[in-house]
Design a protein around this nucleic acid. Structure first.
Lengths: 233, 233
DNA sequence: CAGTGGTCTAGACCACAGG
DNA sequence: CTGTGGTCTAGACCACTGG
């Protein structure tokens, strides 16, 4: 049995995938080390390393120094979701994007918000409520708190034509953040704005971003009924 | 100003990140090419490449041959979610895992299901309903269809002690799949099983996996009220 | 056409962790 | 202690694509 030679890391990856899918290498199995595979595949070890590292990143392999590389027992599926600016998300689908500012004011936030953002409970933050539309239909309601001590320029911005969603990305980059996905029942207000029955089950995204140790903004996006986000595995 | 020398790709990445966050390199800016950066950083071009490629993968840089590397204008946040087996998900939180099979039968599926799975509309599939519990409280309801033509062994499995969620990962690996997240209102049955009011807003995950051209399984996981999935950005 | 990123190579050293 | 993966290097060629 002549194993053909592989010329690039993707073909090496494909071959490894083939062996896993064909159960030639079963979950839990120890596979040959990089040096041996490089020899077998007729390529440099670096190339094998690149292929295996990529598979390990996607959760299909478990690699440990000295212990070697094993086919993952329970391949933790890594679903990578692209969270884009809402405008481009809509425009990429060929729909017309619309935007309406509902409210913009400086306001002392609820305790839960100041706590999550690590801001002084008595200090006002900039609060924004806005609606994003796709083909003139409500698409997502944006409920946002902005930390004006970190983003003072936000106080000068009206957010009437450019959404905070977009403005912040441009003028207030963040170093890290958290994101959460959940389901929520439409309140009376939300139902009104999104034009759906009260108590509808709505998909929501919560995001909290930081610039080093200071919170930049906290936002909840509540989507139209039936909204889903999808990706491939 | 002496730029210190950087000895590994992560320190190079950190330095690039620092320049982006400090707005020394602003969104849209063209940054120096790999060769120049390698010279400046006192390392091999390969090392710079590794650092920049990693940042491009995470959406922070846009790289194009000949056009060079730019700081992404709208950093598409890539949220990577780890979708593990439900049992380990619960156990990793230090909770007690429980499992109850509710129903297991061969059944001709609704048209929507056979269409999505590309199976013959008249052929029965294996249908499973089961409940996952955390600390004896309902955690997630699993509604599943298994293609017995692809996974004949499933017909011999009772799924009384091992959930299909886990069994399939072990005995029926997939080559690719799709996953979607959405909100759904609890039906009467779902409310009963999950012990929550009818019409509650519930978070749900739909997954459809394939072994090459044949569908393996289609599953909907409906979670307890208040459930959310979170990750860092 | 020419500049950029993408990749491969052969060899080397190192960090980690299993036994 | 030793085998494994993790990484760096210097140099080379290639693929793509902007101008």
């Amino acid at each position: 049995m002549n194993t053909p030679t592989f010329r690039n890391w993707q073909s090496v990856q494909d071959e490894v995938l083939r062996r896993i899918h064909s159960r030639e290498w079963k979950p839990g199995d120890l596979i040959p080390n990089e040096t041996d595979l490089a020899l077998e595949f007729g390529c440099a070890r670096t190339t094998v390393n690149r292929a295996l590292r990529s598979l390990a990143d996607s959760g299909l392999l478990d690699r440990r120094r000295k212990a070697g590389t094993r086919v993952a027992l329970q391949p933790v599926a890594k679903a990578t979701l692209d969270i884009a600016v809402i405008r481009t998300e809509i425009e990429d689908r060929g729909q017309k994007y619309g935007y309406q500012l509902i409210e913009r004011r400086e306001l002392v936030p609820p305790i839960a918000v100041s706590a999550a953002m690590s801001t002084d409970a008595k200090e006002p933050l900039l609060h924004i409520r806005a609606l994003h539309l796709a083909n003139d239909a409500p698409y997502a309601l944006e409920l946002r708190w902005i930390n004006p001590y970190v983003v003072p320029d936000a106080l000068k911005e009206s957010f009437k034509s450019m959404s905070a969603n977009e403005w912040l990305l441009k003028y207030a980059p963040y170093t890290h953040g958290e994101i959460a996905f959940c389901a929520t029942a439409a309140t009376r207000d939300e139902a009104l704005v999104l034009n759906c029955p009260e108590q509808s089950a709505l998909f929501a995204i919560d995001r909290l971003t930081w610039d080093n140790d200071a919170s930049v903004t906290k936002v909840r996006l509540i989507f139209e009924p039936g909204h889903q986000i999808r990706t491939v595995l």
